[in-house]
């Protein structure tokens, strides 16, 4: 574990951007993937189901 300050700073400065882009890509693919549409529609309407009792 011998990181000097320069290495850590260089890592921090450059990789943040890559993380941001990679994560954005993953999330967008997931959110916009056509076959997920049905599940999301079901999920957003699920809170209106009869909800006075736990499910079986």
């Amino acid at each position: 574990m011998t990181f000097d300050h320069q290495t850590l700073v260089a890592f921090s400065k450059s990789w943040g951007l890559f993380y941001l882009i990679a994560l954005a890509a993953v999330v967008l693919v997931y959110a916009l993937w056509p076959s997920n549409r049905k599940r999301f529609d079901r999920a957003k309407n699920s809170i209106f189901n009869k909800d006075d009792r736990p499910g079986d």
């Binding site: 990181f3 000097d4 300050h5 890592f11 921090s12 943040g16 994560l23």
Partner: peptide, 20 residues
């Protein structure tokens, strides 16, 4: 995992700051 990255990246280098 996703949330920890930001804090780690900004705070960790400060513990070696005395070098500079």
């Amino acid at each position: 995992g996703v949330s920890a990255i930001g804090g780690f990246v900004e705070i960790a280098p400060l513990f070696t700051i005395h070098e500079t």
